[in-house]
Design a protein around this nucleic acid. Sequence first.
DNA 1: GCCGTTTTCGGCCCGACTGTTTTCAGTCG
Length: 589
Amino acid sequence: MTNHKIAQILRNVASAYTIKNQTKFRFQIIAYQRAADAIENSTAEIKDLTKEGKLETLPGVGPSIKSHLEELIKTGGVKHFNWVFKDIPKSFFFLLEIPGFGPKTAYKLVKEFNLKNPDTVISDLKKIAEQGKIAALEGFGDKSQAEIVTAIKDYESGKGKTSRMTLPYAYELAQKLVDYLKKSKDAIEVYPLGSLRRMVSTIGDIDIAVSTKNPKEIIKHFVSYPYKERILEQGEATASILLSSGRQVDLMTQTPESFGSLLQHFTGSKNHNVHLREFALKKNFSLSEHGIKRKAKGGWKTEEIATEEKFYNILGLKWIPPEIREDTGEIEASHRNKLPTLIELNDVKGDLHIHSNFPIEPSHDLGNNSMEEMIKKAVELRYDYIGFSEHNPSVSKHTDDQIRSILERRKEKIEQIKSSNKNIRVINLLEVDILSNGNLSISDNVLDSFDGILVSIHSAFNTNKQTMTKRILSGLSHPKAKILAHPTGRLLGNRFGYELDFEKIFDFCKTKNKALEINCWPTRLDLPDIIVREAVKNGVKMFINTDSHAAWQMDLMRYGVAVARRGWAEKKDILNTLSYDDLFRWFSK
DNA sequence: GCCGTTTTCGGCCCGACTGTTTTCAGTCG
């Protein structure tokens, strides 16, 4: 059962409570919604957290929801939920999937028109709306009836259900909108915020904030964006549009004097903001995107906040980096002045997962650029060192002697490159497959000439946790094996990673001087941020590598750094922040 | 149902927008 599915079930519980008795269950409704948010946003699978007994680490999951989740994972159902869902037609929950339908609207329509069939409820309702039968109901009218038809049509055509974007894609999309908005003379500052600013590994929709003294003009300009499909909302200070691609873009405006409050509000996460506002309330402050209200004699007094730093400082907090605003302890850490000094892109001194086009005749893909071209790019990035780590030569197509001969030629090439490039150090590495039996795909004796090797899984993913963990530890135990590349094997939007016993892997890395990779490839971003955080807590060292197959891809480093930051990693946790000499010493250990 | 500068009891974020309404309910983020 996926996190998305589990979150949906919890939201259904909240919706069912709303129908049963909104007043009586008011706080249960909030609690279930909050837990659903946390589960939807969690990069760890609930299934795994349940097995590991770590469900309580999710904000909003307490003893009661925890035991319900355990029951759900174990048996596929929950007795208590069945009681909450009793007497509510299944079709009700199907209607909730349509944007704009909340529990009140959905239930009223299901009851009024006796829509009991979950398979046809949506098309049935569309017909009823098209026949003009809804406008007559109390609380509805012509406009809401037309909106129902539009929403269902959007839903049926798959709009809004498009899968989440990779970070670079979302960045490009946001940049186009930022450039467009900046064309308005009334735009003072324009920033993409929301999950994009927090650098979440996948992005749902685009949020943009504009600082302006003339919000009306900005809104007018925004809703005239040439690539919009239609306007979803348009008010005095905010607006939303749907792009032809099915992506939603939300815009918020604020005056320059209060822009700090908007930056804070619109960056989120939602759970971070809720927690921050509860924290503030106890200090007699009330927070919003407009500023900070202070309890004073004769009511509340609002103060405008121009910068985000000031916003946090007034609450007695240090500014919190956007990447860790997920309500996982950052507010408490800030309050105790115990925030981590997160690693920065500038701390990175080299990239050790680089595939050049050297004709190594590999089992997997070869790079597109020469070693010289990759080095040129590394120099541009002001790196101190670069590590070449092509895949090992294909084993099925070569004899041992042929492999040895290819690798010798490659070593000569690297030696030649070393002597002609004095301004950057070159490290001789190789990416080697770990076979399903735990052996490395090429034999021991040819590995001696390398400074180190990266090991990784590229086949036989479908195996259980114990077997895969054993397989990986077996591969990593080779004395030259120093880095486990893209450790979970996940491909975002495509396949889940294989399950691993990370406690064992962490132990092994620490005692045997091995490291885990944070792979920057946009659909990998592997290790996932939540596991990075566990690694940091356990004192396990990591590399951030781009896995570049072309020179331009070395720019993807910032996405891996973002993953590290989201995992609360500091410079000391990441080995490719070391000087060349220190790094080489680590490789020799 | 969750959770903690003080609180293991007694609180629980805040506001924009829309549509159907003469003052508000529902939804969303």
